[in-house]
């Protein structure tokens, strides 16, 4: 299926002046954008960010939750994408490619945190803003990421992509760069672990109880 052509959002003139970048308009689908990036089109990086920045940021937040690092991680993802654009094999799968870079970056971040957990202070998980959810939801979200932190990295990534990000199994497998069978096995394992922990958690117990009607 041909990817949908998305209009390039015109940047805010004040931001452009502040950053010193004179954005040139770019229009075209993902293939054209990838080609433009390879050719060094001056407007292509902005177009890429404007087109997929929000999606990548969402993936990143769903994988890691809110913490103080996601701005740097987001910048790192796009910087890496711009540098390694020549490694993109299928230009039409630009979004999936960016998602996989986000997953890899999140994996590196999680492993780095695990490696230096004895020496570095853990990045504080930030609570959701009061305005966006009620107290119960905010508490439940915080507990979800607390439980995910106890999981192995690969299980956590698979769980977050599948159940929080809502990706299909094949998309999760592609993003994690593993086979479908492997991702199914990981998901089953992650589900068991999470359910076991969530049932013993007062904030999550009510969330994970199967619907009685549905069971019947």
């Amino acid at each position: 299926m041909k990817s949908m052509v998305m209009p390039v959002r015109t940047p805010d003139p004040s931001q452009t002046r502040a950053s010193g970048v004179h954005a040139l308009g770019f229009t075209g689908d993902d293939s054209a954008l990838a080609r433009a990036l390879r050719r060094g089109h001056p407007g292509a990086p902005a177009a890429l960010f404007d087109r997929y920045g929000r999606h990548v940021e969402g993936v990143l937040i769903n994988l890691l939750g809110f913490d103080g690092e996601h701005e740097d991680l987001l910048h790192e993802i796009f910087a890496q994408a711009l540098t390694c654009i020549n490694k993109l094999q299928d230009d039409e799968r630009l979004k999936a490619w960016l998602t996989s870079i986000a997953v890899h970056t999140a994996r590196s971040c999680l492993r780095r945190r695990q490696r230096f957990r004895l020496f570095l202070r853990r990045a504080a998980q930030q609570d959701l803003p009061v305005s966006v959810a009620d107290a119960e939801t905010r508490r439940a979200v915080g507990r979800v990421y607390r439980l995910l932190e106890r999981m192995p990295t690969e299980l956590r990534l698979a769980f977050a992509l599948r159940f929080i990000q809502g990706m299909e199994l094949t998309e999760v497998a592609a993003a994690c760069d593993v086979s479908l069978a492997t991702i199914k096995r990981r998901l089953a394992k992650a589900r068991r672990r999470f359910m076991l922990a969530a049932r013993g958690d007062s904030a999550l117990a009510s969330w994970v109880v199967p619907d009685q009607e549905g069971q019947r």
């Binding site: 969402g58 939750g65 959701l128 905010r138 159940f163």
Partner: peptide, 17 residues
């Protein structure tokens, strides 16, 4: 139930974003 939980977490994240 996990999908429901995940959707609610994702919605909260989107709202926070």
């Amino acid at each position: 139930p996990l999908r429901d939980l995940g959707q609610r977490v994702a919605e909260a994240n989107r709202a926070a974003l």
